[in-house]
């Protein structure tokens, strides 16, 4: 799951070490425009419904937290 998330992130925004980065939102590596595209890709890829209330920095700060969010939505 995390590997696939990293693949998507790299396609959208290359040049970041997503294995270790934990401040994608806080450090403004991804802006709101990127996050919207990312959410679309994630919903498409993993067939989950990401709602407005899931759009928090904590959920999108790292590939790990994004993968965790998707796992929780799949349950």
């Amino acid at each position: 799951m995390k590997d696939r998330v990293i693949e998507i992130l790299e396609t959208m925004h290359p040049g970041v070490d997503y294995e270790v980065e934990t401040g994608l939102i806080d450090d403004r590596i991804l802006d709101s425009f990127d996050v919207v595209s990312l959410v679309g890709e994630l919903m498409d890829e993993f067939d989950v419904q990401i709602l407005a209330e899931h759009m928090t920095p904590e959920n999108f700060n790292s590939a790990e937290s994004i993968a965790q969010l998707i796992e929780s939505l799949e349950d």
């Binding site: 919207v36 595209s37 679309g40 890709e41 498409d44």
Partner: peptide
């Protein structure tokens, strides 16, 4: 709207 398939 922002995350709808058509718009994306």
């Amino acid at each position: 709207i922002t995350v709808s398939k058509r718009v994306l």
